[in-house]
């Protein structure tokens, strides 16, 4: 860890201007990921701008029926929010499946989205890592890869994004409100995180100095019947091996609409568009679910230690969809 300055942001504009004006500045939310990385020497900001006291800590109903979640809303508060629990249970379940009670009490909505991808080699400055030092090579490619990606990886990086919340938000078609030095924009959460490609050092499409101010959930009645299932080695306080966020809308014995995102399989929350396309209009039957899951996973490229993720993701998806279908049919 290197010495750094700490400043508490007075207002959003000032915070954005301060960080945008200093390439070695960083926003500080709950600090549950950034501070770890600072201790490990993985991140070395010289200035932290604490944005947790900005007035971004409310969950508001939007006129169109959706919800606007302030970026500083703590994970535990968001999980307990009445509207979230009633209308978007997949999100509440995903939050409660993440981390530990202590971490959820600290972690913010914006910070959760912006946690770095996870990999033991990224976190250890004594081993080569393209994400930390582009061009060094990827130690995980032929190393310990139990938790690593099976979809969308590159030879430069096989890390996975660890957020549970982001998987649920991806299934819900959430939008991320971003404020930068040149104004505001909205990024679809599905477009926020990147695949590693040639540039694993970039986890997201945000520019330096851009601050997430809110996450917007669209009105989505089918989300009232949604579910998050996290498969993990340890029953609590463990990252996903694979996870599934899904919502199902049945009508007259066929699937009218479906939303599926997978966690633990890629450098970003993985929207299962192939599976969704295969299921729209199909009957809600186990073999359809299985075929859809296999279509989604057809291009999976497992590593030395994570071949199990393919059947695990397939089975978990079939299981979640079957449960949702059973609920709806009941």
């Amino acid at each position: 860890m290197i010495p750094f300055d700490y400043r508490r942001a007075e207002d959003t504009d000032g915070a954005v201007a301060t960080v945008a004006g200093n390439p070695r500045a960083a926003f500080l939310g709950g600090g549950t990921n950034l501070v770890d990385h600072m201790k490990l020497g993985v991140a070395e900001p010289e200035l932290l701008v604490d944005v947790t006291r900005l007035p971004l800590d409310r969950v508001d109903r939007l006129p169109g029926g959706g919800l606007r979640i302030g970026a500083a809303v703590r994970n535990s508060d968001l999980a307990a929010d009445h509207d979230v629990r009633e209308r978007y249970p997949v999100l509440s379940q995903a939050l409660l499946a993440g981390a530990s009670g202590q971490l959820r009490n600290l972690a913010t909505t914006g910070g959760n989205l912006l946690q770095r991808t996870r990999c033991v080699y990224f976190q250890d400055v004594t081993t080569p890592c393209n994400k930390r030092e582009p061009g060094q090579g990827c130690s995980a490619l032929e190393g310990y890869s139990r938790y690593h990606a099976v979809l969308g990886a590159s030879r430069h990086c096989v890390a996975v994004h660890p957020s549970d919340m982001a998987v649920a938000l991806t299934a819900l078609d959430a939008g991320v409100r971003v404020q930068g030095p040149d104004g505001e924009r909205t990024v679809a959460v599905a477009d926020l995180h990147r695949l590693p490609g040639e540039h694993p050092e970039w986890d997201t499409v945000l520019n330096h100095g851009e601050l997430i101010t809110a996450v917007e959930l669209p009105e989505l009645p089918m989300a009232a019947r949604s579910r998050y299932r996290k498969v993990r080695d340890r029953a609590s306080y463990a990252f996903a091996l694979v996870s599934v966020a899904a919502a199902l809308d049945l009508s007259g014995g066929t699937i009218r609409d479906v939303r599926i995102a997978l966690g633990g399989v890629a450098h970003k929350p993985w929207r299962a568009t192939l599976a969704e396309a295969a299921l729209r209009g199909a009957p809600p039957a186990a073999d359809e679910f299985r075929a859809a899951a296999e279509a989604e996973l057809a291009d999976a490229q497992p590593l030395r230690d994570n071949g199990f993720k393919v059947p695990m993701a397939r089975n978990t998806l079939v299981s979640v969809l079957s449960e949702l279908a059973g609920e709806e049919l009941r």
Partner: peptide
């Protein structure tokens, strides 16, 4: 990791110890 010669999951997030929920 035999290439490097050390334990790569050397913290309590990666080296799992049983939790109450287990």
């Amino acid at each position: 990791d035999e290439r490097f010669g050390f334990v790569v999951n050397h913290d309590l997030a990666e080296y799992h110890i049983a939790a109450c929920a287990d």
